[in-house]
């Protein structure tokens, strides 16, 4: 009996040591990114965030961000290939070199800017509070002491935590809103366009929104730190699309109004 145990322990130890050795070797020899010869732009997004990025009835990616990145790709002569991941996995995957860029209605924040390089801002939003129609929550202050849901790693989470509260963190906004409707939450804090889109798509759902007075935020396209070359190109392209009306065309398609000044 004793003998078996020691054999077993040696086995586990061997395996763990070999794992560490392998990672150790790997980490030290990873070289800086080589220039890509093909003109493919690998883009990551979280396709559960209508109207910015979601999949249509034919399982094709669509939405404002999707149209915008395609327009940028076309302008710069790249073939855009979009891959999906959950929102909180996008930045790690960008850093790991899985994508060249991430477009995912991602607000430019100081914290994120330490890990990724942001393009110029391309859209303005803020946080709205979604509640049930008979809710007593009328202002941001009313949120205190209530059960609030957010999508994990979003600015919604950041503003709620700034109030000194701990929100329930969901994988997607629809998960959080479903819990609100089921009575598991008193409110959901999420990006304004997403809340508006939900209510537009589900007029019969027992959900209303409150504007609150959360600060304005700006979305940016995230690139790998140090990829200044691509950043310059993307920014030039964004500027061009704004000037030639293409941006406004996409904006009108998804939000039914002219582009506001940002």
């Amino acid at each position: 009996m004793k003998k078996t145990k020691s054999v077993r322990f040696t086995g586990v130890a061997l395996l763990l040591v070999s794992l560490f050795v392998m990672t150790g070797c790997g980490a030290s020899t990873v070289s800086p990114s080589p220039a890509q010869s093909e003109k493919i732009l690998k883009v990551g997004t979280d396709p559960t965030f209508a109207p910015f990025e979601f999949k249509d009835e034919k399982d094709q990616l669509t939405g404002f961000d999707s149209d915008l990145i395609k327009a940028i790709g076309e302008d710069l002569g790249y073939t855009v290939k979009v891959e999906s991941a959950s929102f909180d996995g996008l930045i790690p995957s960008l850093q790991a070199g899985k994508y060249d860029a991430v477009i995912a209605a991602m607000t430019i924040t100081d914290e994120r800017a330490q890990n990724v390089l942001f393009s110029d801002k391309y859209l303005m939003a803020t946080q709205y509070i979604a509640t049930k129609k008979d809710s007593k929550i009328k202002t941001v202050e009313d949120l205190k002491g209530k059960k609030v849901g957010v999508q994990n790693s979003t600015t919604g989470q950041m503003v709620v935590e700034k109030l000194g509260m701990t929100p329930n963190k969901y994988d997607t906004v629809p998960d959080a809103i479903t819990d609100l409707i089921n009575g598991g939450l008193d409110a959901v804090v999420a990006d304004s366009p997403v809340v508006l889109y939900f209510i537009k798509q589900n007029p019969n759902a027992d959900v209303q929104y409150i504007k609150g007075d959360f600060p304005k935020e700006y979305y940016g396209i995230a690139l790998k730190l140090g990829n200044q070359e691509l950043d310059d190109k993307v920014n030039a392209s964004l500027k061009k699309l704004r000037e030639n009306g293409k941006y406004n065309e996409i904006y009108k398609k998804w939000f039914n109004e002219e582009t506001p000044k940002i």
Partner: peptide, 14 residues
């Protein structure tokens, strides 16, 4: 997250 390190991939294959 480990395999790219072991195989020394910098940009990940499709």
């Amino acid at each position: 997250f480990l395999a790219p390190k072991i195989f020394h991939w910098d940009t990940l294959p499709n």
